[in-house]
Design a protein around this nucleic acid. Structure first.
Lengths: 263, 263
DNA sequence: GACGGGCGTCTCGTATACGAGACGCCCCTT
DNA sequence: AAGGGGCGTCTCGTATACGAGACGCCCGTC
């Protein structure tokens, strides 16, 4: 037996994740059903969560949503995590230089998780990915950037045997074509996503290395596909690669002595 | 009785908050002590939280920190909890108290966008702004309320070089006179529009702040200019300011200077 | 190298958190 | 206005999660 017999603890997490997953506030009984919790127990639980402000009850709609406290706790993750702390100024530099939205992401399982984002002043709500969002790694430039630095065996391990979901029909359909894409990415030194995730949006990303020389994150930028031409791509990719290296250095990475490294 | 007898649920929250509160990763027994959890139970709990990625165990330091999942869940709070949902009850309160039309607006570019509106019972179709309407920010009280909280540089960035349209001839004609008006607004603590948008209508508005202390919206009320006198304005402005602060708090705003939350 | 304190793991009896179900309210339907 | 279904509240017996304590490992000290 591996684990977990702490019923209400797991349930707390189930409930929070359910609420995080539903775009709309969720009625009590819907939560109970989705999480497999009996009616009375669901009430017990929700009351506790409510007292602690982890959930909010919308009287009007008779439904529950996430409370401020989840945000408060979750956001400290960032402050306690040096990556984000160190990455922030770098993102700001990049954004100031090329005036496009840029972001910082990490690999978590087979997904990338967007840690931070910076966009040029005066732009409305962005068209691109938000902080905290999770996307399949094999469909994003930041994902490719990180994966391209892993060995083939590691990539296989990450994706396992499961099928690859495909959002727009533009991404790799199986492990082999993904590996081919990663090969290209590695050679180029940066990842290039031409409208793979979102039609009309291109993305360029480069990997960030830790002090252990592991690809722990990626810095990426997004821009309108309409603008894209070779000159722009080559300019942007230099900036992104430079930023990624800068952040790597801040994390304690040291350029490997042997041979050359993609700049 | 205040309730809550769901032991492991409360403990989950205790543990998460403890980890959020400690700048450094925390050893198992320190957590157990701080939360008043017996040793074996602490392990049960932490195992569950670890499996779900809510906490991370740093082998090297024999200590625990928050996991990515806390961030993932917490960050959805922002996306899932629209201003409008939290604002609605506040608008209703204001409306019930002073029996005037009130509304909620955000800044979008150089315009304000009216998100929601509430008017007293028994009034016919309003003479004032409707939901979804967009108006030049520099001609509205809600616009002034928000702009007054931005730096001069930001205001200049928003309006750029373009000329200022002027609807009734009553508003500011250029950036400098707008900046002067915004200065007055900031000092007063609320914005006051005396028939600037619509002849015969006055408007009072106050800014709403996000958890990042950014002025993300404003709450405003409209009433017939004929009624206006100093006493009424001072009464109304207090209500509006109170409502704006209430909504700010709901959004996670914390009055400047307050440190950690105790209870 | 022996000693000791601190911590992780595991077991098992028992206090207790859980949940079926009964009840009553509210609102929607006919 | 009466009927009915869905949901919140509460109770109480019991399955079960909890925790004291025993055990052994690891590491730092002498």
């Amino acid at each position: 037996m591996s684990s977990s017999q702490v019923k209400s603890a797991t349930r707390v997490l189930d409930v929070l994740e359910t609420l995080a997953g539903n775009a709309q506030p969720t009625p009590t009984m819907a939560i109970a059903r989705e999480c497999g919790i009996p009616k009375s127990s669901a009430h017990h639980l929700l009351n506790v969560l409510q007292e602690r402000h982890y959930v909010v009850y919308y009287e009007r709609e008779h439904a529950w949503g996430l409370g401020v406290k989840t945000f408060e706790v979750g956001s400290t993750y960032l402050r306690r995590t040096p990556l984000q702390r160190l990455g922030r100024p770098v993102l700001e530099e990049v954004c100031a230089e090329i005036e496009e939205t840029c972001h910082l992401a990490i690999l978590h399982g087979a997904d990338v998780l967007y840690l931070d984002k910076e966009q040029p002043d005066g732009q409305g709500p962005s068209l691109v990915t938000d902080i905290g969002v999770r996307l399949p790694a094999h469909l994003t430039a930041v994902g490719w950037a990180i994966l391209s630095q892993l060995s083939e065996a590691q990539v296989r391990a990450v994706f396992g045997a499961g099928p690859m979901v495909n959002r727009t029909g533009a991404g790799p359909d199986d492990l082999d074509s993904l590996l081919a894409d990663l090969g290209d990415t590695r050679q180029r030194g940066y990842a290039f996503d031409d409208q793979m995730v979102t039609p009309g949006i291109c993305c360029i990303a480069a990997p960030v290395f830790s002090h252990e020389n592991l690809p722990v994150a990626a810095i990426g930028i997004s821009y309108l596909a309409a603008k894209s031409d070779d000159l722009l791509v080559s300019g942007y990719s230099k900036v992104v690669a430079g930023a990624a290296q800068e952040l790597s250095v801040k994390l304690g990475w040291q350029q490997q002595g042997s041979g050359r490294t993609a700049a």
